[in-house]
Amino acid sequence: MRVVVQEAPFDFGAEAEAFASGRSDLGAVVTFTGVVRDTGDAARDRMEIEHYPGMTEKALAKIAEEARTRWSLGDVLVIHRYGALTPGEKIMMVATAARHRKDAFEAAEYLMDYLKSRAPFWKKEFSGTDTQWVAARDEDEDALKRW
């Protein structure tokens, strides 16, 4: 299990390639990558992600550990960035490896649902001279209920 919180970009290809490599017992690897989206109407110049150093790492590790107790996983990877990001940049990725795909898919979805609403990150959007904090969505909170 590896949890990384960093400001710098990460190399998705290299991370995906290295993840669970050499583990021929794990027949399924799922990766998910979050990318900064351009909003439909107003151009989003950039985004700044604030986090809570110390708690962030603990919260992510706790979420990953919980996934390991719920599903049969061979390995888990979570990388989440903070700081300034522009549209098209990768914000975060999760990877899960399991013997079978169902565990890998479900665990990846669980990780995503929880780190949206339970990991201490806050996004601020910058569009021209406008700035605003991204509000948490009710759907994201509701998504936790299915687990």
């Binding site: 975060m92 990991a119 201490p120 996004k123 991204v134």
Partner: peptide, 10 residues
């Protein structure tokens, strides 16, 4: 003790 708005990770 830390106070903050609902989190928006991911």
């Amino acid at each position: 003790v830390a106070f903050f708005p609902p989190m928006t990770g991911g």
